[in-house]
Design a binder for these strands. Structure first.
Length: 271
DNA sequence: CCTTCTACCTGTCAGC
DNA sequence: TGCTGACAGGTAGAAG
């Protein structure tokens, strides 16, 4: 999409998780996408109009890409989708025009509509302004995590889901990282030892890296842009494994509810 | 400010 | 077989 022009933007409904901004389509139409990047779980598209388009996939959002073929990408125009998207959930259509790769149609499909798109002006504040460091970057490590958790009375499970502590961690990967570090999700966040915050930071990086390498985690109807399913879900040690024996100590994996979310953990290994 | 709780939505699946 | 209800997730905003 970088370098391409939004030839046409079509909205098939007035809202996703939130209502679309006023004149959403016409404000994007005609602009060029100058840079596409990511922060936390948000996709960020800088537009030549000066505005920034933020896109979040929520739970079940996906982009379907048609066209945009080049010799370099082997003419990847249309994929054999492993998991076809139901057209009734095609909510936004971007018709793109690129000087090198030609026309492409990017369709946003989202059955549960937990995703959203927002248009933000150049110097307008945005909700990402105060979130924590990217977990895979150099700005995130044991000491940084320790400082962010200092004095926190909330449980470590809730703290790691708090995007101000570290960006982009969700329920699954928090469960897995805590298991690998041997820390109970019920521990007070501010009371972890230095070795524990160091270990936790490292395991967070490991879990995320491995999950990305595996193409992500697919639960039920989830898939990525080329319709392929990720397969990291087969590597979960604790998530979704209530009652199964811990692979390390054989104790049954437990499930409790914290902040309205399931926490899976081993009562034997995680203290 | 900090922390906790609930709403939002629909496909899937367990249980009747 | 067909139906009902619980459940899953990320984020915002209300409530405490």
């Amino acid at each position: 999409m970088e370098g391409a022009r939004f030839a046409r933007v079509t909205l098939n409904r007035p809202d996703l998780r939130f209502p679309f901004a006023e004149n959403f389509a016409s404000r994007i139409q005609g602009a060029h996408l100058t840079r596409l990047s990511r922060r936390a779980k948000f996709l960020r598209a800088d537009l030549s109009s000066g505005e920034t388009l933020y896109m979040h996939l929520g739970m079940s959002g996906r982009f379907i890409i048609e066209g945009g073929s080049t010799k370099e990408n082997g003419g990847l125009a249309n994929f054999a989708h492993e998991h076809a998207a139901n057209p009734k959930h095609h909510h936004v259509v971007f018709e793109m025009e690129h000087p090198d790769t030609g026309r492409a149609v990017i369709t946003y499909n989202d059955p549960r509509r937990f995703g959203f798109m927002e248009l933000i002006g150049e110097s307008e504040p945005y909700r990402l302004d105060h979130i924590g460091p990217e977990p895979l970057g150099n700005a995130f490590n044991g000491p940084v995590l320790r400082a962010a958790l200092k004095g926190k009375k909330s449980k470590i499970k809730a703290a790691l889901l708090d995007q101000r502590v570290v960006a982009g961690l969700g329920n699954i990967y928090v469960c897995e990282a805590l298991y690998r570090t041997g820390i109970s999700p019920r521990r007070a966040a501010g009371r972890l030892k230095v070795a524990e915050t160091d270990g936790l930071a490292g395991h967070i990086k490991d879990v995320l890296s491995e999950a990305i390498e595996a193409g992500g985690s697919s639960l039920r109807d989830f898939s990525n842009t080329d319709g392929k399913l990720g397969y990291f879900q087969h590597s979960f040690d604790v998530y979704g494994r209530e009652g199964e024996p811990c692979k390390s100590c054989d104790a049954p994996i437990k499930r409790i509810v914290q902040s309205g979310r399931s926490s899976f953990f081993c009562g034997g290994c995680q203290r």
